[in-house]
């Protein structure tokens, strides 16, 4: 079975160059190494989870991919482009849902979701219709006209997710997008997200500290130590992720690599 995946993977990689490529990336803040010689290739349509404890440098990796940070050494390529030097070249190709919701307080939920669409030059009507359909998808259809401060933390996070997905990006970056939600909502949304990502073969880089999230969605799980450097790498098919026994084993394996058991009550 593992060989099957490998074959599918290499076929996919032949057709498309890697969507996201980090090559020997090194980043330090004020003398403190945060990302250490990190190399990651994310193939087109692949869902990769970055797992790591708090402070491991996960968000930093995301910011490097986004181009808001530049590596001290090494290269970052997104859809073949340097995300910092070729900032505008990636318009519409990349979207992020940040760890904090970052909603614009003067815009309602639906107006926040419209933001990326308006930047892409869509008409007001089209942006509104698309934004509303995405709010429906994240179960917030009746909160469309509420301002950010009128929404709960979980609702805001879902608006943020809708805002990222609404622009129909080729590459999606998610930073702890499901961590703040209760288990039922989180699971439903993860399943929904996974379906959408597969249906539109989106390339996804998910950052999370919850093993559960990674096992539910990722084709490949990268466990990072601190500073960010790959400790463990494992692949997973959609069939395998439904196998409870295998999941339990992988869970333990990842937990061990993270250095200790996962804190189930971690608020995220």
């Amino acid at each position: 079975m593992i060989q099957d995946i490998a074959m599918i993977k290499s076929a996919a990689q032949a057709a498309h160059p890697p969507s996201v490529r980090l090559h020997q990336v090194y980043k330090a803040f004020g003398g403190k190494t945060v990302v250490d010689d990190l190399s990651i290739d994310v193939a087109h349509g692949e869902i990769v989870a970055l797992l790591g404890r708090t402070g491991a440098g996960k968000s930093t990796v995301l910011n490097l991919v986004l181009g808001t940070l530049t590596p001290d050494s090494g290269t970052v390529r997104v859809a073949g482009l340097d995300p910092n030097a070729n900032f505008l070249g990636l318009r519409g190709k990349l979207a992020v849902s940040f760890q904090t919701d970052r909603l614009l307080p003067w815009r309602t939920a639906v107006e926040n979701v419209e933001l990326g669409l308006l930047i892409l030059g869509r008409s007001k009507e089209e942006a509104r219709a698309t934004a509303l359909s995405w709010l429906e998808r994240v179960k917030l259809g009746d909160a469309a006209d509420k301002y950010a401060h009128e929404l709960s933390g979980g609702m805001r996070q879902r608006v943020s997710l809708a805002r990222a997905l609404a622009v129909d990006p080729e590459i999606v970056l998610l930073d702890e997008s499901f961590s703040q939600l209760d288990h039922v909502t989180s699971r439903a949304l993860r399943a929904d997200f996974h379906r959408i990502a597969r249906e539109f073969s989106k390339t996804c880089l998910l950052v999370t500290h919850r093993i559960e999230d990674a096992l539910d969605m990722a084709d490949r799980v990268l466990v990072l130590g601190a500073p960010a450097r790959i400790q463990l790498e494992l692949t997973l098919t959609d069939g395998q992720r439904r196998d409870e026994q295998l999941r339990a084993r992988l869970h333990d394996e990842i937990a061990a690599a993270l250095g200790g058991e996962e804190h189930p009550t971690d608020p995220g």
Binding site: T68, L88, L90, V96, F98, L115, G116, I119
Partner: peptide, 18 residues
């Protein structure tokens, strides 16, 4: 918020406007 809006690769005018 600046990083958020920049993630959509806006023009200068977009950043101003939104």
């Amino acid at each position: 918020l600046i990083d958020m809006i920049e993630s959509f690769r806006p023009s200068r005018w977009h950043v101003m406007r939104y």
